[in-house]
Amino acid sequence: MSAILVVNSGSSSFKYQVIEMEGEEVLASGLVERIGEESGHTRHTTPSGTWESTRPIADHTAGFGAMLDAFAEHGPSFDEHPLVAVGHRVVHGGKRFHEATIVTPLVKINIEDLSELAPLHNPANLAGIDAAEKAFPSVPQVAVFDTAFHQTLAPAAYAYAIDKALAEKQRVRRYGFHGTSHKYVAGATAEFLGKPLSSLKMIILHLGNGASMCAVDGGRSVETSMGMTPLEGLVMGTRSGDLDPAVLFHLHRKTDMSFGELDELLNRRSGLLGLSGHGDMRDVQTAAASGDEAAQLALEVYLHRIRGYIGEYWAQLGHLDAVVFTAGVGENNPLVRAGSVAGLSEMGVAVSPELNEAPGSGARVISPESSRVKVLVVPTNEELEIARQSLAAVNGE
C-alpha cells in the first residue's frame, strides 16, 4: 500500500495530508503553525481522533520534525504506508512548468527565480520542499504548480497589450491561479455528469476569500480571471480585482502613496473589506440583510462582476454545458449562487430555489431539470489533485 504526503507550505505554517492512493483515503491531516514564534502549535488528525501540542518551532525543518513526532506517536505508520512521493503546492510556475514536476536542484533554482512573481508564496513553498527533503531524503519530491493548468491559454488570452519586448523581458502576462482546483473540479464535473471531459464546455467559479473563474473547453483552460498575480479579476475578500491602472497613478499623485502602500491597499484593504468594512462574505450578507447600504453595495458589486465574467466566458466558449460553483463560498452560499446567475435565464442559466437552498455536501445539480445549461455545486479537493499529479509524475505518466 503506497501513500502520498501532500504539503501546502506558507511562510509561518504548513498544512499536510497523507493519502493512501489505492482507495484515495485520507489517513491523516494536520497543521503546523506559528513557525518562528516563541510558541509553535501542531494539530494532527486521524480517523481515531485529533491531538494538539505546543512547542517552539524555529523553522520549517523543525516543523517537519514536529509533524514526524505526531506521526510516530499517533500514526499512521510510514512503515505500513510507505511514501512514494511528497507532493508540494507551489503557487507560481511561470511559463516554465506545464505539469507536476519531480524536484531537482534545477527545479528549485527555477522556483526561486520565479519568487519575484510570487514573493509571498514561492519562498515559503521552497522552504517546505527543503524541509521535506531533509525529513524524507529517499522519497521523491514533486512540485505541483497553481499556474500549470492555465498554460493551455492561447496568446490572445494571456497577452497584455503593452510593449511586447518589455513584457517578455519582465515576464508580464496572464498566468492564472487556482489551477489545481479548477483542474480537479473539471474532472469531477465530467465524472458526475457521466460524460467525457473532452466533450464538455464549462465555466468554473472558485469562490472563496480569494476567487477566480475559469472557462474550460474539453478539459483545457482557455480563459481565467486572475492574471500575472492573483489580484486581477473578481472582487475578493480583501483584493480589488479588476481596476483601471490609472487609479494607481491618480492616488500616487494626489496622496503621495508609495508603491508599497498601493500594494497594501489593493491586496489587503480592498474588495469586500474596502467596500463594506467586512472581508468575510457571511458578515457582508448579515450586514446587508440588516439594511447596511455599504454592505448591500459590496454584494451587488461582487455579483455584478461575476455575471459579467460568465457572459464573457460564454462568448469565448461559443457554447456552454455547465456552470460549476466550488470552494468555500461557492459550495456553501445559496444567496451568492443565485445572485451569480440572476438574469441569465434567457441564456439558459438558472437555479432552482429548492435545489439551491437544500443542504448538501457532495456534487449536485441545482438548476431546474428544464435548463439548457446545468448549474452544479462540485466540492473541490486540491490535496487529492496534488496527490494524483504527484503519483503520475513519479510513475512517469
Rank of each mutant, 00 (worst) to 15 (best):
R388F: 13
G219W: 03
V351W: 01
D283A: 14
A159R: 14
V349L: 12
G308K: 12
S340G: 05
K169M: 12
D280S: 05
L200I: 08
H74C: 02
E133G: 13
N8W: 00
A85W: 00
E385Q: 15
G65T: 15
H98S: 14
A186P: 01
V142G: 05
P82H: 04
A131S: 10
H278T: 07
V235W: 04
E331W: 14
H60W: 05
L273S: 08
T229N: 02
E168I: 13
L297M: 14
G218S: 06
N125W: 08
I4M: 02
T255F: 13
F71I: 05
S115T: 13
I57E: 04
V324E: 04
G194C: 04
F192A: 12
Q316K: 14
A100H: 01
S53L: 11
L126Q: 03
L234R: 09
F177S: 06
A132E: 01
A28F: 03
T104N: 09
I102A: 10
N8K: 07
S361T: 15
E397Y: 13
A338F: 12
V185L: 08
S371Q: 10
D217E: 15
S13Y: 05
Q296N: 10
L265F: 11
T46L: 01
E293S: 15
A131F: 03
M67K: 02
F14C: 07
L297F: 14
M226W: 03
S276H: 02
I109Y: 13
Q285W: 08
A148V: 08
A100I: 00
P334C: 10
